[in-house]
Design a protein around this nucleic acid. Structure first.
Lengths: 191, 191
DNA sequence: CTTCAAACGGACCAATGGTCCACATCCTAG
DNA sequence: CTAGGATGTGGACCATTGGTCCGTTTGAAG
């Protein structure tokens, strides 16, 4: 039952891999430009180690993402308003969306890697389900909003990594402008 | 200047490839399950021919898509209301969205292949740009709607192939239900 | 120090998108 | 009808990449 603490070298390697991967993804323009070999090499680790730890490419990216998003997740799960659970729905939904957008802006490379990564849709990732459930329940608390389940999906779609990348990266829209536009849009949906 | 008509065998082969590819994509659950080799073999054609004609995987998929969507495109560009250009914006936007959703439902495999295909985002495909411009201009005609450019992006995001697939395929939502939900959502956005 | 489960690393594998070019086929000029 | 150049063909070949395997090394418990 007691899973016997992680070996010291294992831990060191895990962190090295995570760090290297983060660096590489941030440096590359498109996630596809970073191969698992690259990551292993940059981390000074064999491929076997890499795969043993993270299972597959997707696992690595998810681990990376999880680490980065943890603070936000916590703020949402048990923090104060306007993100925490005690916030009135009307105020919380826009706040959640704004936070998500900001996160994706700040972590474009990772979000992109996660969402456009393998052939498997982002909709199966636990990540997505978590946000969807959260948002859906929040939307439910707003009278007059249409079907909460679908609305949550549609709202999340509006901040998908590649769209954000297209708007902020491809076209040169500054973050604030995007935030404004999203805010207005969300307001309209919840009106 | 006159590009000298396409050779007869070439045409025959092109059609064979298109047909085979369509069939294969329709049959496979995920687009990744269909390799270029598969297509070539199924079409009774060499790989060289395949690539000569369509350039690369993406080219093939785009050609396929183009063929399928042509009627809808035409109906929108020069047909009668509620899709054609003479439709009042208030009525046209929902109609466009409904038509797009239905199209994606009817061509799930293709839409999926196109949007989740290569590492390149769907946002660079001429396909997307066309719809976005169209929708943006239509939204502009509706007083009270927020920023038309962003709204168009957000609305299109709500009918992205993988989301549609997730809702209609993964969960078992019947098409009509989806259409209703989308309609209500769009109405809200344009209210 | 001994022991052994845990971890390592890199050679190896299979799949796949894409290229190349010797050869076949079509079309047209004469 | 024929010849010859343009166009098209096919499949061997290549490079890359995610992922596996297993003989060797290493950390840590006793």
């Amino acid at each position: 039952m007691s899973p016997r603490r992680e070996r010291a070298d294992a831990q060191r390697n895990r962190e090295a891999v995570l760090a290297a991967a983060d660096r590489l993804f941030a440096a590359s323009t498109s996630p596809g430009g970073v191969s698992m070999d690259d990551v292993a090499t940059a981390a000074g680790v064999g491929k076997g180690t890499l795969f043993r730890r993270f299972g597959d490419r997707d696992g690595l990216i998810q681990a990376l993402m999880e680490k980065r998003i943890a603070p936000l997740r916590e703020a949402v799960a048990e923090g104060p308003a306007p993100l925490g659970p005690d916030t009135p729905a009307r105020e919380r939904v826009p706040a959640l969306m704004a936070a998500l957008l900001r996160f994706k802006l700040d972590n474009r490379h990772l979000a992109l890697a996660l969402e456009t990564g393998g052939g498997n849709s982002p909709y199966r990732a636990g990540h997505y389900t978590w946000w969807h459930t959260l948002l859906r329940d929040a939307v439910r608390g707003i009278p007059g909003a249409p079907d909460a389940d679908f609305t949550a999906h549609a709202l999340l779609a509006a901040v998908r990594a590649d769209l954000v990348e297209h708007l902020a990266g491809g076209e040169g829209a500054p973050p604030e402008r995007l935030e404004e536009r999203l805010e207005a849009y969300v307001a309209k949906v919840l009106a």
